Computed example of a mutant assay.
Amino acid sequence: MAVVVGAYVALGANLGDAQGTVRAAMDQVARLPQTQLVAASSLYRTAPVDSSGPDYINAVVAVDTGLTATELLQAMQQIELQAGRERPYRNAPRTLDLDLLMYGELVQEDAALTLPHPRMFQRAFVLVPLHEIAPERVTAEQLEAVADQGIVRIDEAR
């Protein structure tokens, strides 16, 4: 039997029907093999950070998965591709962006994957929804550090 690991995935989109795309991606992540959705945050609206285009719709989900971190990342990239994700340049507006934030307590840094996600603690659009579903993972100091970044909850958690 596979080892089950708790993982957190950030979801964001700012092109097309961003709310619908993020909701559909939450469902797709929940349906991955050997994976069960544990919690899903509310949807949040944020201005682009290091990016351009319309406001983003963001959320975070918690899953328990038997997939390895690399397998989970590859499955997430397939979901992005199915949503029409293109990568014309760094931080381009996107139909869907999925980031693996944490995979258990794994610390990893290589060409394919860095865990925990290297910029997650600099971004309100990650920390606020993560705090909603896993308050023990985000400190008050971390939230205070991003308090100047505009973020608005637009839809209740599911």
Rank of each mutant, 00 (worst) to 15 (best):
D155E: 15
P54K: 03
R23S: 09
D50M: 05
L11I: 09
D148Y: 14
S41R: 07
V60R: 15
G6L: 13
D50G: 07
P48N: 07
R119N: 12
P33F: 05
M120L: 15
L37I: 11
Y103A: 00
L43G: 11
A145P: 11
A124C: 07
D17Q: 07
M120R: 11
L101C: 06
G84L: 05
E105N: 14
E136Y: 12
L100A: 02
M102E: 05
E132T: 09
E80R: 08
L115P: 01
Q122I: 11
D155L: 12
A39C: 08
A92Y: 00
G53Y: 10
V5G: 10
A10S: 11
V60L: 05
G84N: 09
G6Y: 12
I133V: 03
A112G: 04
T114W: 06
L67V: 03
A157V: 08
E136C: 03
Q34H: 13
D27T: 13
V3C: 07
N91R: 12
E141R: 13
A18P: 05
A39E: 07
L73K: 02
R94W: 10
T65F: 00
A134Y: 08
V152P: 00
E105S: 12
A124E: 00
T35S: 01
S42H: 06
A147T: 06
T46G: 03
G12F: 11
D17E: 10
G16F: 03
R119E: 13
A40Y: 06
R94A: 02
Y103P: 08
A62I: 05
A134L: 09
M102P: 00
E86L: 14
L130E: 05
E109C: 08
L101E: 01
V38A: 11
A112M: 12
I154K: 14
M76C: 15
L15I: 11
Q36V: 10
A92M: 04
G12Y: 08
D64V: 10
F121H: 15
R119I: 06
L98D: 03
P54V: 01
D97Y: 10
L127E: 00
R31T: 07
V146A: 11
D50V: 07
A134W: 06
A111W: 12
Q149C: 13
P129C: 03
L106Q: 14
V61F: 05
G16W: 01
A24V: 02
V63D: 05
T95L: 02
E156P: 13
L15Q: 02
V5L: 11
P48A: 06
